[in-house]
Nucleic acid binder design. Sequence first.
DNA 1: TTGTACGCGTTATCAT
DNA 2: ATGATAACGCGTACAA
Lengths: 347, 347
Amino acid sequence: MVTIKQIAELCGVSRGTVDRVINKRGKVKPEKEQLILETMRKLNYSPNPAGKALAARKKQPTVGVLIPSIGVHFFDDVISSMQNAARRYASYGLKIIWRSMRGFDEMEQCQLIDELAPQVQALIINPVNGQAVLERLNALAAEGLYIVTLNNDLPGLRRHCYIGTDFYSGGRTAGALLQMIGARELHIGILLGSHKMLSHQRRLEGFRSALEERFKKGAPGSWEILSVQETEDDDILAYEEIKTLLQEHPETNAIFVISSGASYGAARAVQAAGRAGSITMVVFDTIPSTIRMMQAGVIQAALYQHPHQQGRRAMQVAFEYLVNGAQPEKDSYIMRNEIRIPENAEE
Amino acid sequence: MVTIKQIAELCGVSRGTVDRVINKRGKVKPEKEQLILETMRKLNYSPNPAGKALAARKKQPTVGVLIPSIGVHFFDDVISSMQNAARRYASYGLKIIWRSMRGFDEMEQCQLIDELAPQVQALIINPVNGQAVLERLNALAAEGLYIVTLNNDLPGLRRHCYIGTDFYSGGRTAGALLQMIGARELHIGILLGSHKMLSHQRRLEGFRSALEERFKKGAPGSWEILSVQETEDDDILAYEEIKTLLQEHPETNAIFVISSGASYGAARAVQAAGRAGSITMVVFDTIPSTIRMMQAGVIQAALYQHPHQQGRRAMQVAFEYLVNGAQPEKDSYIMRNEIRIPENAEE
DNA sequence: TTGTACGCGTTATCAT
DNA sequence: ATGATAACGCGTACAA
């Protein structure tokens, strides 16, 4: 690989001049600049990340992590992988400041953002929906903060990179799966966290679209949605709601749980009603309780959102920006929604 | 993070002495060695990979890649990801020598190994089954060559790291899936590449075990395997075999294709017999022709072996050994067998 | 406008 | 047995 030094020698200038061209610091004669750019292009120069990393240490590169993860089991795996990556990157001199919170209060998140911002050059955040957060983050981005959003991409937010899944496609996959593994005449109960959560809404839309499409294309049978209930991601609420549903609609033979915070409660209600196995349950995320319920034959399938990859990738993007001075290849990294059944969910 | 320099100052010795302790080069007074080891442990010293990478350049680190990939579409994605990783690592000064071959001839692979060995310090290889290859590689490993095996792990081979999938678990997942999405009374035709291929055999065993288990546990219905045919990974052969099967056993309502080299041929035969959709097809790998056949409703599901992750990881392991002087965290990286249906297979 | 010199952490060589 | 010193590639402060 070609180095700055070699470029400099070839162009008959000093290393410093080449560097000024590369980092656009000006104060270089136009004709020399042209020559340097040309030979760089010709020799396909690309900076050695190791050199950059070494030099970057002086800046004390620090990234802040802010996730409303308390009580949300989906984030457990995301965070464990982020910590893993953080350990590796620590040997390069990268520092991390961790902040978590419970619930989705906009003002609380703003406060934590303000606390982190002066200490870090990059921020990995699962942003709460809301105008205040949006404005706060956009202001900081304008001041030069590097922002990576995780699992929720606020419209209008000028973040540098987004990492998450395609909610609509996740819903479609769930719907198609239910058509494949469920009864011919589907009577479906649905639980979501809240109608206000954009991600849950999109999943529901995708779910409907896939079912509609498959039956329109000639899949035998029929489908109907009996109810769509909000659970606030609470297992007890979910338990009660499914209990009521099964009483009022004994014909229920399929349940779709859109967020992991309700799947255990729903599964327990199905079990309690003696309907385990005769009701097809499709849920999101393979948290430990879900895996147990799959092995027990209560939940038939779960959608896996690659939490580990999400965490690893988020850290990597922040690391490469701060330490290697590199932009990510893509503006957003969208993980696939995978299908897990007992046979391929085991650890 | 703490550096060698800091350790040296704290112990009142020079950097060279600390280095000699770290790399076990001897010539250090026992009491000083103890002191240095102790403070390293106490301060939790871990070497900065950037420094190592910079110093490693002088050794001209080079890795050889040897895959019998010609005509095997599964490897297309593996190799594309390896090339991607290679591009990134090239900026660190890592060189790659690529070799591919057609078919699985033992002697041909030995010859290519001998050609590569003197030029490289690490080798990424999909080893052909056979005694000659085994001995050749073990001899080279003893001489200090770093060996990463990909997608096939020869018993008795002293490789440093293996990257691949769990074939048995892949078969189990396929069997369970067929039970879930197929007819109640399953009449199954199976295609595999060759009975001699260990991986295909293991998948078949897993397939049988999952079906047996599920029906024993109370799944309604029954299952039988009508035939297990070898295809030599040839689509034309597969086409003819499925054609014959459907004539001789019109009751066939499920087909399991164990290797991607036969799935297109099998799908075409199902189409030609006018049985698309009424026969449940489960195959391995999401190569382009398989995705098309899924979208056309001929193949219902495919098992995805994370080819991209496999390629990326193999390169990463070789890179980190040669450039960062680091051993991988695990002795083997086993990718999961994912389930893909049309709704989550689209690009 | 341009060149020089130092530091980042590691490895390796050469004196002592 | 030990210490000093020169690379490796890059960023930057400072001198010319």
